[in-house]
Amino acid sequence: MSAHNPHLFVFGPGYSASPIMARAMKNGWKVSASHRDASKADALQSMGVTPVPLEPTALQPALKTSTHILTSVAPGPGGDPILPLITTLADTLDSLRWVGYLSSTNVYGNHDGGWVDEDTPAAPSLDRGKRRIDAELSWNDFSNKSKSALHIFRLAGIYGPGRNAVRTVLDGRAKRIFKEGQLFSRIHLADIEESVWRAMNSSLPSRIFNLADDAPAPPQDIIEKAALAVGKPVPPLIPFEDADLSPMARSFYEESKRVRNDRVKTDLSFKLKYPSFDSALDDLIAFETGSKT
């Protein structure tokens, strides 16, 4: 497949990857994506995406013509589930020139509210962060074997239409958990789409990008702003020690850091559409209340 007919293959065509897939198709790209069951295949076809079963004999011909691979699949306790399926194909993917991996800022571990950037050594404290680092290294090996550029996107807390503090407040599920000094960085779905799209259309060599906005903030402040903006009662503050949280939710509070995003701005010449939660608030309210689609 020529450079004028790019073919994007997506592993994990979910919330973060779907806008990128739609952007590619709008620009004339062929887009294929993996699936595990027939219902997912039907949903992909309805989007205009070619569904491919997640098994080697089906993957091989689809990947053979792919110029770009994007994966958003999180590694499990046994490692990245995709790499064992495609590593043996790396030497045969003659058309492949770019691989994108959606990782996480949890690879940096806890910095007690301090700043991190792409040059900060990875020091994950959580098991899922350690698995992310292992997956990043494995995808680096794959990109070397396939002679393709690898762009790793370390994502902060993802929010956007349907998944945000406004939606949580309107659904009556919002909690204001307070832990002294706790800060989270966030990234809007639209800014993930634009960053990845620019990277996959660039000639940049392999590198890491942090995807985070400009305004890390305490989580309780975000809930308060959302509640006030939609005219709902502000939930009471709950001390972290007293909060009824799942083990997964509780683990997020074990790490606190501010994430720098300078590399996206300089290397991709990109100005964030939503540099803060405040800047996204009106659009989130419009979407969640049905006045904007």
Rank of each mutant, 00 (worst) to 15 (best):
Y253M: 02
E180W: 12
A122W: 15
S256D: 00
G181S: 04
G79A: 10
I222P: 00
L268W: 10
G290F: 02
A38G: 05
S2I: 09
L170V: 11
A24P: 06
L211H: 01
T289Y: 10
A249G: 07
P205F: 14
A33V: 05
S246V: 04
H68C: 08
A58K: 02
L272E: 07
V196P: 11
Y101R: 15
M21T: 06
R97W: 01
K265L: 07
R97F: 05
D214P: 05
F153D: 00
N106K: 08
W29P: 00
W29A: 12
T120N: 09
N110P: 00
K265W: 08
A135R: 08
M200N: 05
P84T: 09
F270M: 13
N201Q: 14
D37N: 14
G14K: 01
P84Q: 13
E55W: 01
G172P: 09
L8E: 12
D112A: 09
K40A: 13
V169T: 04
S185C: 01
D267E: 15
K265Q: 12
R198A: 10
S32K: 05
D278R: 00
N261H: 14
P161R: 07
E118W: 13
T50S: 11
S34I: 01
S279Y: 00
K257M: 00
D141A: 14
A280H: 03
T71I: 06
G129T: 10
S34Y: 01
V107T: 15
D283G: 02
G162E: 05
T293L: 01
L268N: 12
S203N: 15
A3V: 12
V234D: 09
